[in-house]
């Protein structure tokens, strides 16, 4: 059986694309279970879904309102 290949790809100005991982632990200890073949991990810290990227790096506002 061949060793599993895990890769990390950095997207300039965006997240890390990770393939082959089982889980990703974010700064605050949140464990993200990997449930798709490639996941995007937040690098800017603005995501509401850490450790995952939610494209918040695209929003102009510093942080989005959490009013609902």
């Amino acid at each position: 059986m061949s060793a599993r290949r895990v890769t990390v790809e950095a997207c300039p100005g965006g997240p890390l694309l990770i393939r082959g991982a089982d889980e990703v632990v974010s700064d605050d200890g949140t464990v993200g279970k990997v449930e798709r073949s490639v996941v995007a991990v937040c690098r800017c810290g603005r995501s509401d879904r850490l450790p995952w990227c939610d494209a918040s790096h695209r929003a102009k506002r510093r942080s989005r309102k959490k009013d609902d």
Partner: peptide, 14 residues
């Protein structure tokens, strides 16, 4: 789609 399309955005553009 929030998480999936954050991945797809990178895949599609780059």
């Amino acid at each position: 789609h929030v998480e999936a399309d954050a991945v797809h955005e990178q895949l599609a553009i780059r």
